[in-house]
């Protein structure tokens, strides 16, 4: 088993770590790499931070009262609702 990861490999494993539990060997190799590599540590932080940021964007959109259904869309929906009822 090669213990040393390149930054490219490390970045792929970091991304995967957000999606699934890592294998024992990947976890070990990543741990090793992160001890010596400041750039990949920052990348790791970036990805976690990115999740938070996108969630905030979604919240901000949900709470933005200026975003509304257009009158046309509402009229269309009212019509579709009436049609479905009969």
């Amino acid at each position: 088993m090669k213990l040393m990861l390149t930054c490219k490999q490390a970045s792929q494993i970091i991304s995967q770590s957000l999606d699934k539990p890592l294998s024992w060997s990947d976890r070990l190799k990543l741990k090793f790499h992160l001890i010596i590599c400041a750039a990949c540590n920052r990348f790791n932080q970036q990805l976690h931070w990115l999740n938070t940021a996108v969630k905030r964007l979604i919240q901000a959109t949900e709470n933005d009262d200026t975003i509304q259904l257009s009158l046309e869309a509402k009229a269309r929906m009212t019509k579709a609702i009436a049609a479905r009822k009969h």
Partner: peptide, 24 residues
Amino acid sequence: MTKNVNDWLTEHGDYLYRFALARL
């Protein structure tokens, strides 16, 4: 029920739209 659904569209339509828009 139709009345309810129309009320819901009025009361919650914009919110639901924002919810969907934020994700889609």
